[in-house]
């Protein structure tokens, strides 16, 4: 039983980070549709920088910095030209896939799976260390959101931005800050996915960004609710992944649809009606 719980917790690290990032952006009044694209981009950058610098730590840090800088530029542009944030984020998801494809072909000569002896990690330590890192980052995020003044501004931006305006606080800048924080969490999730696989696989996120949005919705846009939703979704994913032990003939593509089916079922059986959209 302890093993099962531990495995579910290990499995939850990337989704927990992505969901927490999505939650921060949701507080600021923007659905972080770009998270899926950032997970893919940061996973690739983590691999690329690690191989190029021969240091996993440098790889992770540079990946998070570059992905966040990319989102900073993107969000600033969205705010400046008053673009539709939802469509722009969809564009970013597609665009990041193209950038990964382009860079992968240019640097590594292939746009397929990338592996290297310089990007190999032992499974057990990788699982423990990434889980601990995910917990620390989430705890730090909760403290930031609920204890600091900047966190309070972010939480007010989505619901009562007029209050901030009346106090002379730049709402647009607060929204960009929330988006950048979401990008930090999403890129950490991307790094974790790449490290756990010891490789980069195209479309490594496999919809985790969208599942993160579903978790935020299921958690009724609260941090505790989101964490519970992530745990429930990961528990279902764990049991689905182990279904092949019981039903050996079940096809692998079918298992890929399980996380989404679970998310839909959870939305369906969740008590009450969610407020807002």
């Amino acid at each position: 039983m302890t093993d099962i719980i531990l495995n579910i917790l290990f499995l939850s690290s990337p989704l927990l980070l992505a969901s927490f990032g999505a939650l921060i952006s949701e507080y600021a009044g923007r659905t972080a549709v770009f998270i899926d694209g950032i997970i893919n981009l940061s996973a690739f950058l983590c691999y690329a920088f690690t191989v190029l610098t021969k240091s996993p730590a440098a790889g992770c840090i540079l990946s998070v910095v570059c992905s966040t800088a990319f989102i900073l530029l993107f969000l600033t542009a969205v705010e400046q030209v008053h673009a539709n944030p939802f469509l722009a984020a969809l564009a970013l998801n597609i665009f990041s896939g193209a950038i990964v494809s382009l860079l992968s072909a240019e640097i590594f000569g292939t746009r397929g799976v990338l592996t290297s002896p310089l990007f190999t990690f032992q499974a057990v330590p990788a699982r423990y260390s990434t889980f601990i890192a995910a917990c620390i980052l989430t705890a730090a995020g909760i403290i930031f959101l609920f204890v600091t003044k900047r966190g309070l501004y972010i939480r007010i931006t989505g619901t009562n931005s007029d209050v901030l305006l009346s106090k002379g606080i730049n709402v647009s800048r607060t929204r960009v800050l929330a988006g950048c924080l979401a990008a930090v969490y999403a890129s950490c999730a991307g790094c974790i996915l790449a490290i756990r696989l010891s490789s980069f696989v195209p479309n490594i996120s496999s919809g985790k960004g969208w599942l993160a949005l579903a978790a935020v919705f299921l958690g009724k846009r609260t941090s505790t609710g989101t964490i519970i939703a992530v745990a429930a979704m990961c528990a279902a994913e764990y049991f689905a992944a182990n279904l092949q032990n019981v039903l050996p003939h079940i096809s692998t593509p079918l298992l890929l649809s399980f996380p989404y089916i679970v998310a839909i079922i959870l939305i369906f059986i969740e008590p009450g009606k969610n407020s807002g959209n």
């Binding site: 969205v78 030209v81 008053h82 673009a83 539709n84 944030p85 939802f86 469509l87 722009a88 969809l90 564009a91 970013l92 597609i94 665009f95 990041s96 896939g97 193209a98 950038i99 494809s101 382009l102 992968s104 072909a105 240019e106 746009r111």
Partner: peptide, 23 residues
């Protein structure tokens, strides 16, 4: 070209639409 040029065009196109749409 060795990479997914269509994906790049799709992304650029949608980004342009996002500006036009908001306008």
């Amino acid at each position: 070209s060795g990479f997914d040029i269509n994906l790049l065009i799709q992304g650029v196109m949608l980004a342009c639409i996002s500006i036009q749409y908001a306008g």
